[in-house]
Design a protein around this nucleic acid. Structure first.
Lengths: 213, 213
DNA sequence: CGTTAAAAGTGAAAAAAATCACAAAAAAGT
DNA sequence: ACTTTTTTGTGATTTTTTTCACTTTTAACG
């Protein structure tokens, strides 16, 4: 298929449109307009249209976008038409919170197994099994998993990352507050709560100092 | 003080430099260079220097930056010299994972209380008390809290946000996968794990389709 | 000391992203 | 059917961010 050059941010926006659209659809909307989407997602209507334009998504002038059709196209672009199996390294607080989280299933994402070094955490009973970390490689290979989540302490993160990559994992969502030494053929996104919280604090302070009218 | 116009991203980078610096300092580094920092954080040395330049941070030509001094300045800019008290709404999986997380304390961030509607979750015994949601407003007011974390289901998020804002909270870190209807004088950052994971999946697929050499 | 080499600092240039603004289409109204 | 109004689609423009490339300073070395 045609390769689309897209920035991380524009893809992130497409996902947001898709999520908003899902909600609109549940509310019975048949047609949606760029300004409605903009507003749901926190942008401008021009940007919505530009994004769509960039990905070759067409609407109807004066008629907006057909919700079903648009959703189909977005899902297509985002690769949401095939279910994705994901593993987690680290069965601590964050790891287990993710395992228990219901939201992924609706999005075609299945967390199929977790792995941990701590023998106390191993458990095959529950809906999602927790295996010893040693078994990660074999599991990933036999089940052809391509996406992994790192939810281990920062000190172990790089090591776990390398195990994942050598197992054949191509995309990683990293919760450890550490920059992973990446290679070009593996995609890494970072979720760093500390950083985000610090950022909020900074802007609250900054707002207080300056914009205090 | 002088008001610095800074983008969210540049502040995020400053935080990263600060975190990297903390690690370097623990390893005994007395002087650091822009390329070392760049590398630790995943950027270019030019960008590090530009960022510092923008905030009036000076180093020594040929001598780099004194680690202590630089850290002091970064902490100063980021407002890390005063401890920040934070509350959490939602004592579910995510909320409790955050409460238990040790990383905040080192950063001068204290989670002082959690709140939940579910009476079963109320508990005053532990290190961090969980109060009924009703009491949030009073608590925030009497303790003069300015930062809140939203870790409630998406359906309740907007409502909780409004309670927070009306209580005097000025900055929010939102974990609900919903765009909060914000006002200009409140800072909101979003952490959306689903979105990030979808993004990883997209780029893995995209890489597979195109760059498959 | 004087020379060399390494690194900061920063305007200028380039690239990337967002916004504007308006023509074209088509739904709705009369 | 014709007119009006609304909304898309997109080239052009503007703004923002990043990178370049060169000057200046100073540590290190002989």
């Amino acid at each position: 298929m045609r390769a689309i050059i897209a920035s991380r941010n524009s893809i992130l926006r497409l996902s947001k449109y898709k999520n908003a659209l899902n909600r609109f659809q549940k509310l019975g909307y048949v047609r949606v307009f760029s300004d409605i989407l903009a507003d749901a997602v926190g942008g401008t209507s021009a940007q919505v249209r530009k994004d769509f334009s960039l990905f070759g998504i067409k609407g109807n002038k004066r008629g907006g976008y057909n919700a079903d059709e648009l959703l189909g196209k977005l899902n297509d672009i985002l690769g949401k038409n095939t279910r994705q199996s994901v593993i987690i390294a680290g069965a601590g607080k964050i790891g287990m919170a993710l395992v228990k989280y219901k939201g992924f299933e609706n999005e075609g994402i299945s967390i199929v197994a977790a792995f941990d070094i701590d023998p106390a955490k191993i458990r095959q009973g529950g809906d999602i099994p927790v295996f010893p970390l040693d078994e990660l490689k074999a599991f990933v290979k036999t089940n052809d998993i391509r996406i992994g989540i790192i939810a281990v302490p920062d000190i172990a993160a790089q090591q776990v990352f390398e195990i994942m990559v050598s197992s054949g994992i191509k995309g990683v969502l990293n919760f450890a507050p550490i920059r992973l030494k990446e290679t070009a053929d593996v995609v890494v996104n970072n979720v760093n709560v500390e950083l985000e919280l610090e950022n909020v604090i900074y802007f609250v302070n900054a707002l207080e100092r300056t914009g205090s009218k």
